[in-house]
């Protein structure tokens, strides 16, 4: 019996690993889908958003750790139920350990979030190449900017300004230098800082959301164990892995549904989605500055054109309808009316 149990333990662990991998893939796909609408039109460049996706997916390892912990608790609980011993204590231990893991994870990320300089470096590192033309400037720039956070002086910002002026503006768009009113540095810096701020909020919101999801996953496993115990107590057998999967699926979704009907949790999700959209909007505006300089059509311009066409099309439709109504109302004059009109015209 012990041998069989061990074999099943191996299989169960494998199932959990697969579950975690599938979940990871599902989340990754979700981020990828969200990313679809903002495709960088420049080949070989990589929007920073993708790195957020990757980090989120990487951190699913935490879930795997929690699942392993859950499984070990499960192994601990069942023999106790069989022996009529106190299994509630083991479940309580599990919950405490789960909280501890989440706290540990949360403390680590919050610590990073509190240090703006670290965040900036992380941002630059993860954003990678927003545009081939800017990468050099960015690479050199994060040093002085980090100093800004530490020293609290404006000097590093000025250095950064100069960097953009020298590297981005002079070197890359040297020919445009002849036109003084094109100077983009100030505008660009403002947008860059705005994007960084949006990214910071996204980073924090992402961590919060991930903590919440992890907690929900842990909770669903806890509920699964309760359900299995309850079934066992009623003498109802779980016949096979398929049935086990069905129970697990049902319980997990019930816990998920309940959790996201709670407003506090919804707010966490909302903050994440809103931060994500805000970041993408900022990123898009940043991209438009560059596209403008390269004389490329902007998305906002295309939208404007579409809006004009839409409004004109609507107006033409309304005019056509109005014309059709007038035509329907206007009946051709009778012969008598014709004659009367003809005689009423004064002759000169």
């Amino acid at each position: 019996m012990q041998k069989e149990t061990n074999s099943w333990s191996g299989m169960a662990e494998q199932v959990m690993k697969t579950w975690a991998e599938v979940s990871t893939q599902a989340w990754k796909s979700w981020f990828d889908l969200l990313n679809l609408a903002l495709r960088n039109p420049i080949a070989d460049t990589k929007p920073g958003f993708e790195s957020v996706t990757e980090r989120f997916a990487d951190n699913q390892q935490l879930i795997l750790r929690l699942l392993k912990l859950s499984f070990h608790t499960w192994q601990d609980i069942f023999p106790k139920i069989e022996a009529g011993e106190d299994w509630q204590h083991s479940l309580k231990n599990y919950t405490q350990q789960l909280r501890a893991q989440i706290d540990e994870f949360s403390a680590g990320t919050i610590k990073v979030s509190q240090n703006a300089a670290e965040l900036w470096q992380l941002y630059i590192k993860e954003t990678q190449k927003f545009s081939q033309l800017w990468v050099k400037a960015w690479g050199v720039s994060f040093g002085p900017l980090s100093k800004a956070a530490v020293t609290g002086t404006s000097q590093p910002w000025i250095e950064l300004n100069n960097l953009y002026w020298n590297l981005l503006y002079e070197e890359t768009f040297g020919s445009l230098m002849q036109i003084p009113w094109l100077g983009p540095t100030r505008e660009f810096n403002n947008k860059l800082v705005g994007t960084f701020d949006a990214w910071t909020k996204l980073y924090r919101a992402g961590v919060d959301y991930q903590i919440l999801l992890t907690e929900i996953q842990g909770k669903s496993f806890e509920e699964l164990m309760r359900e299995l115990v309850s079934l066992a107590e009623k003498g109802e057998k779980v016949k096979d892995w398929r049935q086990f999967q069905e129970i697990w699926g049902r319980i997990a979704d019930e816990v998920f549904e309940k959790a996201f009907c709670v407003e506090d949790n919804l707010k966490v999700r909302g903050r994440f989605l809103n931060a994500l959209n805000h970041y993408r909007l900022e990123q898009q505006q940043l991209l438009e500055i560059w596209m403008k300089m390269m004389n490329l059509p902007l998305r906002s311009e295309v939208d404007e054109v579409h809006k004009s066409i839409y409004e004109l099309r609507k107006e033409v439709k309304n005019l056509k309808k109005a014309l059709a109504q007038y035509e329907a109302q206007a009946t051709p004059p009778t012969d008598e009316e014709h004659q009367s009109i003809a005689t009423s015209i004064p002759k000169f």
Partner: peptide
Amino acid sequence: MLPFLMQMRLDDATEE
């Protein structure tokens, strides 16, 4: 009352 993991036999699972 056997817990789930112990209710199943490896040969049954192999057949499945």
